[in-house]
């Protein structure tokens, strides 16, 4: 590995944070996307249905 230690540390300290923010935005958009509501409601109730056979 030919990276300078300082470069790696700087990269870790900054890009890790940007990654976190980007990731959070994608997850929140997905979770609250109006089109997904029906699917989630279905999944939420589906576990309670009978389950004797596939």
């Amino acid at each position: 590995m030919n990276f300078e230690h300082e470069t790696l540390v700087a990269f870790s300290k900054s890009w890790g944070l940007f990654y976190l923010i980007g990731m959070a935005i994608v997850v929140v958009v997905y979770t609250f996307w109006p089109g997904n509501k029906k699917k989630f409601d279905h999944a939420k109730r589906a576990v309670l249905r009978k389950e004797d056979r596939p």
């Binding site: 590995m1 990276f3 300078e4 230690h5 790696l8 540390v9 990269f11 870790s12 890009w15 890790g16 990654y19 990731m23």
Partner: peptide, 20 residues
Amino acid sequence: AAASVGGIVEIAPLFTIDET
């Protein structure tokens, strides 16, 4: 992608730590 970034970011710089 979500899980590995934390490990990579924290551990990768330790491999060059002997420079310091």
